[in-house]
């Protein structure tokens, strides 16, 4: 029984079958990659996991509880954090403030009216945020305006914002999309470090095979809304069905 169990999920947009009978099980403390060609339904599946979309049928269980019908912030409070395809950070705030917000969310829950307490009384939060920034090597940029960061640093910051919540499951939506080779390799190193240092489960949606094969312990291949195969990376590489899905029938 995995930490995340997706059973018989179907999702239609009008006449388009985005997901049909998707079953997926992500084991605790593993790195699970979901790959597939464009339009395979990877992002739709991810959106069903975080509460942005609700599947037409089927169930999504996380840690023994259903996530269906819950709002994104409720699902986050259950222990799922999400990294977006383009880094979503608070661009108007400083790097340090960006990391403080998830610290508050973790401590105070979805709402708390702490309207007159000064930040000087929040030593624990400040310390926690500082430790996180040291972990991701961004402490020297703590006062920088986060919109002015490079793309790689924005990704790093977003990752820090997710990790500081100590989520049980980290969902990554194409974490290296649109990155230069060097940035991609940095991100891979960062993710490896996270995997080795922390008790965390990761589910990665990725296009880049280099990233997938350097990180994943298990891989699910999606094509046209259905899972084709699920196996360890060594067996996926040469799998005929996978080559067919990626290269077309003729190959």
């Amino acid at each position: 029984m995995g930490i995340l169990e997706v059973k018989d999920v179907n999702k239609n947009f009008g006449g388009l079958k985005a997901l049909s009978n998707v079953n997926l099980s992500v084991a605790e403390n593993s790195v699970h990659a979901i790959i597939g060609p464009n339009g395979a339904g990877k992002s739709t599946l991810l959106n069903c996991l975080v509460g942005k979309l609700i599947p037409d049928t089927g169930s999504v269980m996380f840690d023994g509880q259903s996530v269906l019908g819950r709002k994104p912030h409720e699902i986050n409070q259950m222990g799922i954090s999400r990294v977006f395809q383009t880094p979503e950070i608070f661009g108007d705030l400083t790097v340090f403030e960006n990391v403080m917000i998830p610290c508050f969310a973790k401590r105070d829950g979805e709402f708390r009216l702490h309207a007159v307490e000064g930040m000087m009384n929040e030593a624990e939060i400040v310390e926690e945020a500082e430790r996180m920034l040291i972990d991701v090597n961004m402490i020297d940029k703590r006062h920088a305006h986060s919109a002015s960061l490079s793309r790689g640093d924005k990704r790093r910051l977003e990752m820090a914002m997710c990790l500081v919540q100590q989520p049980k499951l980290l969902l990554l939506d194409e974490p290296t999309a649109g990155m230069a080779r060097a940035d991609t390799n940095n991100t891979i190193d960062l993710l490896k470090e996270i995997r080795d240092k922390r008790d965390i489960t990761m589910a990665i949606i990725e296009h880049d095979m280099h990233v997938v094969f350097s990180l994943a312990e298990r891989i699910t291949v999606l094509a046209q809304g259905t899972p084709l195969v699920e196996d360890v990376p060594e067996n996926i590489k040469g799998h005929p069905k996978v080559q067919e899905a990626y290269l077309g029938e003729a190959a």
Binding site: H73, E88, F90, I101, P102, A105, F111, M161
Partner: peptide, 11 residues
């Protein structure tokens, strides 16, 4: 700054 990020951050 970013309402979407806030709700995916648990608030």
């Amino acid at each position: 700054s970013n309402q979407q990020r806030l709700s995916y951050t648990g608030m």
